[in-house]
Amino acid sequence: MSAVRGLEHVVTRLSDSCGQGHSGSLLEAPSADVLSCSMQAVVYYGVPGDITDVLPRIGEAGIAVWGPQDGEGRDMPHARGTVSYALTYHRDHGRYPDGSLMSTPVLEAAGMRVDWDRPGMPMPSRFEGFVHSCDPDGGHPVYERCSTAPKEPMSMAAARDQYGTVLTFSLGEPGSSAYQYFTVPRRQ
């Protein structure tokens, strides 16, 4: 994503952790895995220009196939999760021709997600706590690594003031092979 013109790096956070599954209790069954490891990276970018100039460049970068496509590799018409849907959303100010509200656009691919501020509707911010916290996702940590670059990032408010729009690129979304990349199943 850093090769996409029109994006300015704000902060990257990488977390990698392995945790023991719980062994159960009187009222709960034990977890299916003895050990589970997951990894996630989130990069925040500032968009100093118009997001509708950047979205096509993200599609052209070939990072992933964003949303459903037809047999010729074109975005399916009106399919949420595609670049064309996101552009339509912005062009039509989030409304269908009949005036009803469109669903909020995001770009989605296997294990990846791109989200951004919409005019008058900033992304829900996990930013401050997320960047400065490296808590594991439950269980008892056996291994944990968390890093943030830069070490002292600007605040989300400062990023919005400087760039106007903030965009996130997430790798290792829950349910992907990167998110839970290693497990040791419990013997039955």
Score class of each variant (00 low, 15 high):
residue 48 P to F: 05
residue 49 G to Y: 07
residue 50 D to H: 09
residue 50 D to M: 07
residue 52 T to E: 09
residue 54 V to S: 00
residue 54 V to H: 00
residue 54 V to T: 00
residue 54 V to F: 01
residue 54 V to N: 00
residue 57 R to D: 06
residue 58 I to K: 01
residue 61 A to P: 13
residue 61 A to L: 06
residue 61 A to C: 05
residue 62 G to Y: 08
residue 62 G to M: 06
residue 62 G to H: 02
residue 64 A to S: 11
residue 65 V to L: 12
residue 65 V to D: 13
residue 65 V to K: 13
residue 66 W to T: 07
residue 66 W to A: 12
residue 68 P to M: 14
residue 69 Q to W: 02
residue 69 Q to P: 01
residue 70 D to Q: 04
residue 72 E to W: 11
residue 72 E to M: 10
residue 72 E to H: 13
residue 75 D to T: 03
residue 76 M to G: 08
residue 76 M to H: 03
residue 77 P to R: 02
residue 78 H to W: 13
residue 79 A to F: 07
residue 79 A to E: 11
residue 82 T to A: 06
residue 82 T to E: 09
residue 83 V to E: 09
residue 83 V to I: 15
residue 84 S to D: 15
residue 84 S to K: 06
residue 84 S to F: 03
residue 85 Y to M: 04
residue 87 L to N: 01
residue 88 T to K: 14
residue 90 H to F: 14
residue 91 R to N: 02
residue 91 R to D: 05
residue 91 R to A: 14
residue 92 D to P: 01
residue 94 G to D: 03
residue 94 G to L: 04
residue 95 R to T: 15
residue 95 R to V: 15
residue 96 Y to C: 05
residue 99 G to V: 12
residue 99 G to W: 09
residue 100 S to F: 07
residue 100 S to P: 10
residue 101 L to N: 07
residue 102 M to D: 09
residue 102 M to W: 08
residue 104 T to P: 00
residue 104 T to K: 02
residue 105 P to C: 01
residue 106 V to Q: 11
residue 106 V to G: 03
residue 107 L to A: 09
residue 107 L to C: 11
residue 110 A to Q: 06
residue 110 A to T: 02
residue 112 M to T: 09
residue 113 R to D: 05
residue 113 R to C: 14
residue 114 V to Q: 00
residue 114 V to E: 02
residue 115 D to T: 14
residue 115 D to P: 00
residue 116 W to P: 14
residue 120 G to V: 11
residue 120 G to F: 11
residue 120 G to S: 12
residue 120 G to H: 10
residue 121 M to G: 06
residue 121 M to R: 15
residue 121 M to I: 12
residue 122 P to L: 05
residue 122 P to R: 07
residue 122 P to K: 07
residue 124 P to A: 04
residue 125 S to Y: 00
residue 129 G to H: 04
residue 130 F to N: 12
residue 130 F to C: 02
residue 130 F to S: 14
residue 131 V to W: 03
residue 132 H to M: 13
residue 134 C to S: 14
residue 134 C to W: 10
residue 135 D to H: 08
residue 136 P to Q: 01
residue 137 D to Q: 05
residue 137 D to P: 08
residue 138 G to W: 08
residue 138 G to F: 08
residue 139 G to P: 10
residue 141 P to I: 01
residue 142 V to C: 04
residue 143 Y to D: 10
residue 144 E to R: 12
residue 145 R to F: 15
residue 145 R to V: 11
residue 146 C to G: 10
residue 146 C to L: 06
residue 148 T to D: 03
residue 149 A to R: 15
residue 149 A to C: 07
residue 150 P to N: 10
residue 150 P to M: 10
residue 151 K to H: 14
residue 152 E to M: 13
residue 152 E to D: 15
residue 154 M to R: 11
residue 156 M to F: 07
residue 157 A to M: 06
residue 157 A to S: 10
residue 159 A to E: 12
residue 159 A to R: 01
residue 163 Y to R: 06
residue 164 G to F: 12
residue 165 T to Y: 03
residue 165 T to L: 05
residue 166 V to G: 12
residue 166 V to C: 13
